[in-house]
């Protein structure tokens, strides 16, 4: 396994128990609840979550578009969250953290040509001359597998896969330490999806950067991620190495995700047996209970209390009271 987590090394990114609220006053809602995450250089970490899981907010918090109310985000051990405007701009111009937005069609200015799009960050830095910028832009494009002939095209004039590559080129031209990709492949078909995933896999080794891939489904991480973090309604319910988490999910929600993912072969879990058929008792009424309880087939009275995120094995955490028993139950109930 290339580029796996090196525990001894200092992580590039450390998200430390952040709480994030969005909205103001009485409409303010907690989007992230005590979320922690480490990413090392050369490592790809997947963040999986469905609608309302807070995965995009997590990305926006890391890049500093949203400030955490509690907790901190560190880049190379230095706090980068909640900084003042001057320091924030300095951080941004450094280009250390780069964000590849979901939906490249909307995150690339339709009136700009590709060269101007990719150069924007370098121009904002104001350190390099015009020729040097042009050279780096074309180098970045080659790195993501695009020709110079695209330089003068506009986003509407290139294909979806090419747009995603342009978005990645715009990020890596700044030689970041950390790259966050929000749903980088959700709009692409299978072959183009794999091409982009392979590109990310390549970049982490050639550039030795840390990469976070945010996805709503497992296929967007398949084959490239080392570790995965499963988010449900703003909480981490499980994390660990991708092989372990998906071959033996420890949280019923992860189990449901795995069982629900469409694939062309077979499955070890049956989604129908993981779903709530009829709600036996109102476990979901508990405000401070397990976030997944209302959809959990295996919820019991104890799930009215919030399960702590426990390290069940080194590098494997799960937040479920029944993490070691529910699978047995799944098997015994036909």
């Amino acid at each position: 396994m290339s580029g796996g987590a090196q525990a001894s090394e200092e992580p590039v990114l450390a998200v430390e128990a952040v709480d994030v609220y969005l909205g103001r006053g009485h409409r303010s809602t907690r989007i992230l609840d005590a979320v922690s995450l480490d990413v090392h250089a050369g490592e790809i970490v997947g963040v999986i979550g469905e609608t309302g899981s807070g995965k995009t907010t997590l990305a926006r918090t890391i890049v500093g578009l949203v400030d955490p109310a509690v907790g901190a985000v560190r880049l190379d051990a230095r706090v980068i969250s909640g900084t003042r405007a001057t320091r924030r701009r300095q951080l941004r111009r450094s280009g250390h953290v780069q964000y590849v937005f979901q939906d490249p069609l909307r995150s690339l200015d339709p009136d700009f040509t590709v060269d101007r799009i990719v150069a924007e960050g370098l121009v904002a830095q104001g350190r390099l001359g015009r020729d040097e910028i042009a050279r780096r832009v074309s180098q970045a494009l080659r790195r993501v597998g695009l020709d110079d002939e695209l330089l003068t095209r506009r986003p509407a004039e290139i294909s979806g896969g090419q747009r995603q590559r342009v978005a990645i080129a715009r990020a890596i031209v700044l030689e970041p330490r950390l790259l966050i990709c929000d749903e980088p492949v959700s709009a692409l078909d299978a072959s183009n999806r794999n091409k982009i995933l392979r590109l990310l896999d390549e970049l982490r080794t050639t550039l030795d950067i840390a990469i976070i891939v945010i996805a709503h489904d497992l296929s967007s991480l398949a084959g490239i991620a080392d570790r995965v973090l499963v988010l449900y309604r703003g909480q981490v319910v499980e994390d660990g190495s991708i092989g372990e988490v998906f071959s033996r999910p420890a949280h019923p929600y992860t189990g449901l995700l795995v069982a629900s993912a469409p694939n062309v072969i077979h499955r070890s879990l049956d989604a129908r047996q993981l779903r709530v058929v009829s709600r036996p008792e109102q476990v979901d009424a508990a405000v401070d209970g397990c976030v997944f309880a209302s959809r959990c087939r295996f919820a019991t009275d104890s799930c009215r209390r919030r399960p702590p995120l426990l390290e069940v094995r080194p590098g494997r955490r799960v937040a479920c009271h029944h993490h070691d028993t529910w699978r047995a139950e799944h098997v015994t109930h036909p």
Binding site: A190, S191, R193, N194, D201, A222, I224, V228
Partner: peptide, 23 residues
């Protein structure tokens, strides 16, 4: 066949992902 190769297999091992060359 190519489509099947690039489709989700339901396994998440690190591997070289298959692609269909060209457009």
């Amino acid at each position: 066949q190519a489509m099947l190769r690039v489709a989700s297999l339901g396994d998440y091992r690190r591997r070289e992902l298959e692609v269909i060359p060209g457009q």
